[in-house]
Structures are given as structure tokens and as C-alpha cells.
Computed example of a mutant assay.
Amino acid sequence: MADLQDDLHPAAEVGRVDEPFPQEGMVVGPEEYRPVSDPDDDPLDRARAVLAAHPVADGYSGLPWALRGLPWYDLDLGESAVDADVPRLRRGQVGAVFWALHLPEGHDGDRALTTTLEQLDLAQAVVAGHDEGLRPARTAGELVDARNCGRVAVLFGPAGAAALGDSLSVLRALHALGLRVLTLTGTSWAGPAGLTRFGEEVVREMNRIGMVADLSHASTPTIRRALTVSKAPVLFSRSAARDLRPHPANLPDDLLTAVGEAKGLCLVPLTAEQAGPTVRDVADHLDHVRTLAGPDCVGLSGTYDTGSAHPQELRDPSCYPRLIAELLRRGWGEADVGLLTWGNVQRVLRAAAFTAHTAQQRRPPSTATVTALDG
């Protein structure tokens, strides 16, 4: 049956990591690491030097939703009504940011899709209207291009899976419009019981087109199954360590270990609710995640402009150097800081692109439906 494409194209064959890169997907390896700061410098000065070479790729911003209610704003000049305008992003040495397309609770079906499209349209218009400071990006290479041009790269996503309306055609359409991350929660096929057969097909189709799966706020069964099914790295856009601070979106130690084994990426949010009220609390979570998942699997999620309270020393993106200074004081090497701020997001985006390239050679667009697979 055409709907059961996975039986004809086994998922285990998609994006195998032991295959050579195809010529079109060749990735240039990183240059040999060289220190960029003097160990005798003040930690804040060292932090700024490290961030100059390895800027922050911020994994979650609620700015599109925050801008909906403003009659006028100027992000280039500076905007006091939001947390993250261009001047503050530059002071914090942010090189890239993911703009979330937030779905209020209760939005589903056509309403969820409409809300997502409206926010995507707004986000694209905002970037186009602030092109001296912002630049849209869809790939790891475009992040680097934006940085080299002195712009902050903006990636669109995560969006809520409810926007799909159980349609893989809508998934592909949203990807074509620029969406790059989708949160797998709040649907019949990605709920408390885990991924259904159709949910697994959604993950495989996301792999095929290069859409990254976000598992923050997903149920534990959904997380475990997605880690198994996905042949590209997954990420957690807003998840800290539950062992340090109990919160439903934070991850217990066994899942953090599983994320490391799957080479996923846990982006620790800079919020008081999930990480704690001080910069030291946030650093504790980063230490914990790095220890369990590994230095390749931890990143940063500012979670600014979401209405969340932030640690006192991290009130807006301009404060990122304070967090990096705290990590340097704790003995983090510059190489590990570079992975935390920039390198790990690059890895996930490059791996998603490579997996998509190889999957598209073996698997046509899926025509599966939730009715055919889940009854």
C-alpha cells in the first residue's frame, strides 16, 4: 500500500552515519582549535573574547508572539517593550536565534494552522524590515553567512505539531515556507502514550525533508520512541535537569543520558522557573547536562519574550557574557564553550541536512494518513 511506505523503505536505511557523505552534502571539517583569550584575563573579558569567535546560537525566542500586540516597534534602534532587540542581541554576542511560532493552549485544527502561518508571515516581515541587523537562515551555512555579514541569523521554529492537522502535506508546505523545527506534542499521534504509527511516519518524513524534531514538553514515551525512530539528531528547545529542579519540561538523568547516546541536543532555558533564580543555578544545569549527555549535546535557550521570569543576572540577551564568564570560572575550556554556544547547533543542522539528502535518494514523499496507519 502506498500509505505504508515505511514497509517498502525501511527507516533503518535512512541517513546511515556509516555511509560516506554524498558530494552535494560534503561538510568541511572544523579548523584546529586555537585559544582566543588569555587565561590571565578577567573572566568577563575572556567570555567576550570567546563569544567573538563562537557567538551564541539561542535556541528559543518568543519574539513573534510578543510583537503581535505592539502597534509600532523598531528592533534596530531598540525596543523597550520586548527583551530581545538588535542592540541587546549584539551586546550579548548572539549570532543566531530560533524564533518560536507559539500556539496558545486550545488552538488546534485549522485555527492552529492559521495562527502558525500568521506568526510565520509576521516573523518573515519583521526580519525583512530589519535587514541591517537580522537575516533569515534555513541552514548551518546560512547561519555562518549571516554572521560573516554582521547580521543575526533568524531561524523559524519551533512550531507546534497541532498546526499540521494530521497532514504530511502541510508539514512539507510549512518546511517550504521556512519552518525548520517542530515540537512533537499535543496531538493524537504524539501524546502521553507516545508516538503512534502515524507519529513515527511524521518523524521519518521530517528526517526526509530536513525538519528538526523538538521534544521539549513531550511525554517520556514520545521522547524514547522519537530517539529510536529519528535518524537525525533531535533537540529539546527548553529543557534543563529535573534532578536539580523539578519541572515537567526538564529531563531526568536517564533521559539526559539517552539524549547523549543519540547525539541529540538539550538546550537549557535561562528561566528562573526551570533553571533557578541566579546565573550560578543556570551554570549548575549546564554542568549537569554536560556531564550526563556530553559536551556535544548541550546548548543555550534564552527563552526571552515568552513572559517567563529570568535569573537576575540574565534579564535579557545582552547578559550572555555573564553566563559564559561563570562557566570559565568553573573550568570550562574554550573549546567546550564554543560547542555550547555555536558548534552544537551547527552540528544538528548539518546532520539534519545530510540525513535529508540521503533519505531523499531512497524514499519518495510520504502519502501516509493518520486514518490508514492508526485506524
Rank of each mutant, 00 (worst) to 15 (best):
A262P: 02
V27W: 04
A128K: 10
H285M: 04
G62M: 06
G191H: 10
A232C: 09
L164S: 12
L182T: 01
I209G: 13
Y304C: 04
A123Q: 11
G210S: 08
R172E: 02
A66S: 12
V152K: 05
K231W: 00
G15S: 00
A309K: 11
S188E: 12
Q23V: 08
P277F: 05
E200V: 14
F98D: 04
S237F: 03
L177Y: 14
P158R: 08
D40H: 08
A96S: 13
Q361C: 04
R238F: 10
E273C: 06
D254M: 10
L195T: 04
L182P: 05
G294P: 09
T228L: 12
D131A: 13
V370F: 06
S237H: 05
D296K: 04
L349S: 01
L256Q: 12
L373A: 07
L340V: 00
E334R: 11
R197K: 14
L120A: 15
V56R: 00
M211Y: 03
R204T: 02
D336N: 12
R315F: 10
V94F: 00
C319T: 15
G25Y: 11
A213D: 06
A249K: 14
P321I: 00
L195S: 04
T187F: 10
A47P: 06
G109S: 12
L244C: 10
Q119F: 02
R290N: 06
E201N: 15
S366L: 04
M26W: 14
M206S: 08
D110G: 09
